[in-house]
């Protein structure tokens, strides 16, 4: 399962799909089925995104190619996250659903109004740097400053 960035999917669905299919082909894998599983809200933000398109692919790949394949997915900025799980065989339902969806156009719907929760961006500058700290303390100010009361 690969989580794709919705912005990329909105631009071009085939291009977004090719991120996974091309990477599998690059590392000598054979795709058995691949389809869009769902587009939904994430339980927690990933790379400042609240929603993602879930792409489910079943493929066969030589074991020594898998680290390179995972590394490619890791480096791709359009991939929010991935999960690779070993399965015994591809489910028949998946093959049917993938065949139905193959070649079909898809566009990601706009997120609902109640879903537009912005993730706070990280501060570019250190907030402590904006505070003006006087470097030179004037002599008058130091002379007029009240001395702390001594007890006892």
């Amino acid at each position: 399962m690969v989580l794709l960035d919705n912005d990329v999917v909105r631009q071009d669905w085939k291009k977004a799909k090719a991120i996974v299919t091309d990477t599998v082909a690059k590392y000598g894998g054979s795709l058995e089925s691949c389809r869009r599983w769902d587009e939904r809200r994430l339980a927690y933000p990933m790379k400042r995104k609240n929603r993602a398109t879930f792409y489910l692919a079943y493929h066969d790949m030589p074991g020594d190619m898998i680290p390179g394949f995972l590394r490619d997915l890791e480096l791709n900025e359009s991939v929010l996250r991935y999960l690779m799980v070993r399965v015994d065989e591809t489910p028949e339902d998946e093959r049917k659903l993938a065949a139905e969806e193959d070649g079909a156009e898809y566009s990601v719907p706009e997120p609902p109004d109640d879903d537009l929760i912005e993730v706070p961006e990280e501060a570019e500058t250190d907030p402590l740097m904006d505070i003006d700290i006087p470097v030179d303390i004037p002599a008058e100010a130091s002379a007029t400053a009240p001395e702390p009361a001594r007890e006892g």
Partner: peptide
């Protein structure tokens, strides 16, 4: 744990 990793369930 897999569902948490792909953001389907919260931690």
């Amino acid at each position: 744990k897999r569902a948490r990793h792909v953001g389907l369930l919260p931690f």
